[in-house]
Nucleic acid binder design. Structure first.
Lengths: 124, 124
DNA sequence: ACCTGCAGTTTCCTAAAGGAAACCGGTTTC
DNA sequence: GAAACCGGTTTCCTTTAGGAAACTGCAGGT
């Protein structure tokens, strides 16, 4: 008789899994957290500012990631009609709701470092 | 004169960014959150159980992801010397410290769904 | 004997992510 | 007038992630 074990099939479990997948899809890729983290503390930055602040990112990636974030209403893009044209990126109110997640992640990472380099350092 | 703008160069900023990167490297990939989420609610599962519960994952991926998680001390692997050999995977105490992150992510995802399908549904 | 389950590993392949460099049209500064 | 800044896009290429299927070796059931 074939086994079919089901544990993750309650409605609550399933919607939880879906919720996690949704969030991670929106925040996927190498740069999203980094970009959002930067915008969270700066409020209003231009494209070239971001290139400089988000260390290592290239124009293509930044452009693409910002478009993704804009589509999901996490970041707003405003074109100012100044002389050589400037564009301002800013985290939206909705984007700010990501702050708790980012804080938890940053905290955990900090503790992780401590547990590796601090203490007895017996584990890899 | 070349621009060099530095904003993210304070010690606090930098360690925050590093912390985020650390965490996300450990939890990278399509399956880690899903596996951890499942183990968080089940405590002690065998390989084939996980294959069944983590919908869609293949043996190769599961095996690889579990190794990663074990290396980072988030999951423990215990071989029982039973007849055809059974292996138990279990989240470690340390792995449990990820619970707040996962909860935040799950909550955010849930709210996100609501904001799309609920309300006026005027935005894509 | 044969099938099934356990816990994986190995091989082969495709798709997606990401990076480097060139290019665009325009403007201001040296 | 040469170089730099602005905000990107386009092209080309490499690397990585991920999946499907086959295989391993052993034990218990029928």
């Amino acid at each position: 008789m074939k086994k079919q074990a089901y544990l993750n099939t309650t409605a609550t479990c399933n919607s939880r899994i879906t919720a996690i997948r949704d969030t991670m899809e929106i925040l996927s890729g190498k740069w999203k957290f980094h970009i959002i983290g930067t915008l969270l503390q700066s409020d209003k930055m231009r494209f070239m500012d971001l290139i400089r602040e988000v260390e290592g990112i290239g124009a293509k990636m930044l452009s693409k990631e910002l478009q993704d974030l804009e589509m999901n209403h996490l970041v707003s893009r405003t074109v100012l009609n100044t002389k050589p044209i400037t564009v301002e990126y800013q985290i939206t109110e909705y984007g700010r709701t990501l702050e708790p997640i980012i804080n938890e992640i940053a905290n955990w990472g900090t503790e992780y470092r401590k547990s590796i380099y601090g203490s007895t350092k017996q584990e890899k």
